[in-house]
Amino acid sequence: MSLSRRDATNVFPEVACYFLGALLIAFFAVVLLRSEVRAAQSIDALPDMQLWSDIRKDAYLRAIETEDSPVLAVLRAPSLGLSVPVYNSASDLNMDRGAGVIDGMAYPHEPGHIGIAGHRDGYFRILKDVAVGDNLVLDTLNGERHFIVEDLRIIEPDELEYLQDSQDPRLTIVTCYPFYYAGSAPQRFLVRATPAQKPPTTGQSS
């Protein structure tokens, strides 16, 4: 059965509305799906904050909303599940959102003594469980660098000889101590590491 020109004219608006409605439904479905994916990704991107203080959580969430500084490296401690971005200075902002290179010490991709500082009630609280022999990894601009923890030390804030650059390649991580001290912590906790001869196959050195 064929349609007259008049019948076809009457049917066309109905068909057009049907397809327009279907397109709008598909469009909003895609928008909703993308928003859900972005929300899931933002949640997954957050670090594990189970050990963090409430103050540090709030500071982190505020800090990541600011303009990003370039990340020089990612510091990882596989045995602890630690993975933290390392920025070019140990400013308050950089340590609120990760860790920072101590002024006057080598950058992660440079030779010499690398010094990295971070807050004891944020990323670095897990360092309470670090042990001599643990493997540390720096993912740098020039590739991976592997270190083995050789010494754990508690020092006074004025013992700056432990935080000076040198020709001797090593890595020192520093945070305040005690880890759960109420108020401004009086001491510093050092994790001192030397280059590994070869990348270990597990989170611990052999």
Rank of each mutant, 00 (worst) to 15 (best):
S2P: 01
S2G: 15
L3Q: 07
S4W: 01
R6Y: 11
R6V: 09
A8H: 03
T9C: 06
T9D: 11
F12E: 07
P13W: 10
I25T: 13
V30I: 14
L33H: 11
L33N: 08
S35G: 01
R38C: 01
A39E: 15
A45P: 04
A45E: 11
D48K: 01
D48L: 06
R56F: 13
D58H: 09
A59I: 00
R62W: 01
A63T: 06
S69F: 05
S69W: 03
P70F: 02
A73E: 11
A77K: 01
S79L: 06
V84F: 00
A90L: 02
D96H: 11
D103Y: 13
M105W: 08
P111K: 11
I116K: 03
H119L: 02
D121M: 03
D121Q: 02
G122Y: 02
Y123L: 00
I126E: 09
L127R: 01
G133K: 10
N135Q: 14
L136E: 10
L141F: 07
E144S: 12
H146C: 05
E150Y: 05
I155F: 03
E156K: 12
D158H: 14
Q164G: 10
Q167T: 13
D168W: 12
R170G: 15
T172L: 11
T175G: 03
F179S: 06
F179D: 08
A182S: 14
P186D: 01
V191F: 10
V191D: 05
A193V: 08
T201F: 07
T202M: 09
